[in-house]
């Protein structure tokens, strides 16, 4: 999963989701190149990109130079304060928090990126189709969205997770047995991906549809349609680029949001399997000790905030770089 973590691959996948490169007009190819050029000129965005890439790299190579294993317990040093031996201190089992933070980065970044890719893909595609087509297609999609959306997330996630955990990790493997190895390697995260993917695309879908509803009535879109442009062209040339800004804002919120959702799941015991750490699990373990040992929650909380900040600046940079309104000016 490691290559998915890199910020580099994160920077560009959005347009490709609904618009494969081969079928793009030459005008829009220039548009993307321009956008990339503008992004490179944005220092904050590039700093964020570097930070995220560095983080991803750390997460990948961390085990090589870590002084402790993330699961090595020292029962004589429970909740130790930061020191030369343990730079960030230790947790409730005397495990080195720095090691757990770095291994946790793997889990959390993977959760954030993979889940968000699923969410954005489904949400954008359906939102575009619903908003553009209108009529019964719109009604159908929005009814499904309404139904799923009206579903309390937690109920769906708990049920899906209980089911998947039994299927993937139980003593008698069910029909998902082929994925059991993968699930084990992911620390039991497959269920988290599926549960998040199933529940979180709705917001993006509604957002995109709302945007398209407003856009499709605009003069230039109506003009394009009057001139006989096909739906595919209208979506690609007018609707998608104009919708990208909000989608990107949603996505930049979405990645850490998935990380946070995993934290909430950990809080009720539905996150990763022990002894695998994730930032979410570390935060929910830290909150139990916040009064007596505030240092335990500090590191994962700061890590989540910094990562989120980076995604935000990157998202803003992308937004500015891709904004067609800016380009026209």
């Amino acid at each position: 999963m490691s290559e998915r973590i890199s910020g580099e691959s994160r920077a560009r996948p959005q347009p490709q989701i609904v618009s494969p490169p081969g079928r793009r007009s030459s005008v829009s190819r220039g548009f993307w190149t321009d956008a990339w050029r503008r992004l490179v000129r944005n220092p904050l965005a590039m700093a964020s990109l570097s930070f995220l890439s560095f983080l991803a790299l750390l997460a990948v190579v961390a085990p090589v130079f870590l002084p402790y294993s993330h699961e090595k317990q020292d029962l004589l040093a429970l909740y130790a304060s930061p020191s030369a031996a343990h730079w960030l201190g230790t947790d409730h089992l005397g495990r080195d928090l720095l090691s757990r933070l770095l291994i946790g980065a793997r889990i959390s970044l993977t959760v954030g990126l993979v889940a968000e890719c699923i969410i954005i893909s489904i949400g954008t595609a359906l939102g575009l189709v619903a908003g553009y087509s209108g009529g019964w297609v719109d009604s159908l999609i929005m009814r499904v969205v309404d139904a799923l959306y009206a579903f309390p997330d937690l109920l769906l996630i708990i049920i899906v997770m209980s089911y998947l955990k039994a299927q993937l990790g139980g003593s008698t493997l069910g029909w998902l047995a082929p994925f059991a190895g993968m699930n084990k390697a992911l620390g039991g995260l497959l269920g988290v991906f599926i549960a998040l993917g199933l529940t979180s695309w709705l917001t993006t879908c509604r957002l995109v549809r709302g945007q398209v509803l407003s856009l499709r009535e605009r003069e230039y879109v109506e003009a394009a349609r009057a001139l006989g442009a096909g739906s595919g062209h209208v979506i690609r040339a007018h609707l998608l680029p104009n919708t990208l800004g909000p989608i990107l804002v949603a996505a930049t919120l979405g990645v850490p949001n998935a990380i946070l959702l995993e934290a909430s799941l950990s809080f009720i015991g539905l996150g990763v399997d022990p002894p695998m750490p994730s930032w979410g699990l570390m935060i929910s373990e830290g909150v139990q000790a916040v009064q007596s040992y505030p240092h335990v929650i500090l590191a994962p909380a700061i890590a989540v905030s910094l990562t989120l900040l980076a995604f935000n600046f990157l998202g803003d940079g992308l937004r500015d770089a891709l904004d067609p309104l800016l380009k026209r000016a």
């Binding site: 934290a263 809080f267 935060i283 916040v290 909380a301 905030s305 989120l308």
Partner: peptide, 19 residues
């Protein structure tokens, strides 16, 4: 303001409430 917003978004509500 946006920095504060990020802090707000990145802190789970159970942490905020407990603190």
């Amino acid at each position: 303001l946006m920095f504060l917003a990020v802090i707000g978004i990145s802190t789970p509500s159970f942490v905020v409430a407990t603190v």
